[in-house]
Amino acid sequence: MQPDHPLNDLLRKDRIPHIWCSGCGIGTIFSACLNAIKASEIDLSKVVMVSGIGCSGRGAGYINVDSFHTTHGRAIPFATGMKLANPSLHVIVFSGDGDLFAIGGNHFIHAARRNIELTVICVNNLNYGMTGGQAAATTPNRAKTTTTPLGNPESPFNLPLLAYASGATYVARWTMLHTRDLTNSIKEALQKKGFSFIEALCPCPVNYGRRNKLRPLDVFKAYQQKSIVKNGANPIEIDADSDKGIIVGKFIDTERPTYTEMYNKIYRSKG
């Protein structure tokens, strides 16, 4: 008899196959996340996944733990309320670049500043996939999307730099090809207290790739040829430019008191 897929117990099997397109990297990053949860040996009944809206926002719907699919951009404040009301929960926010950094950008920087104990995983596919491939806050300059038909006049965020500047205590970036490093980073982040942020780059073959003449295997070739692992690199110097090079690695791993720790110390120590 054929043995079960090793992640079957963490999947809502009745919802598989998922909605992600053929060749979309979200599934791989999601799989890395599930493997990391397993490897962390955290009590699964205390693991919660919160997602926003968008392709990656569907992540919460496929994990067989308590999972919340919230509104567009609001996964982080929802998760903040949940974590503060029950600090014994391990709250993972799994969402996309548009959700976390355009509509939800304000929430992201404030949760990082407060050092709320959340593990935020951002699937960065450089565009809004769910709505058909519009420009995002991460779309490279001059890239073509349905709302930048002649090329993107804007410049993208450097997400690890934004996370670092906002106060995140763990910051890493990997591509979906670095799946073992990615899994390891997520595991480390889960076992660490404080706000942690992991950016995972992946292709969106149907919407972004098609308009920019990037087949997924071409993207992978670029990941293989242009990725430079620089653990501990200064986030100000980490390009994610397929011409110059894609700097990946664990950039920040530091400690500072979390919101809950400070709140307990200042407000609850008298009792």
Binding site: P6, H18, I26, G27, T28, F30, S31, T179
Partner: peptide
């Protein structure tokens, strides 16, 4: 193959 598969469709034991 197992960890790169986006669809939980292949694995080795």
């Amino acid at each position: 193959c197992e960890i790169i598969c986006p669809d939980f469709a292949i694995y080795s034991i």
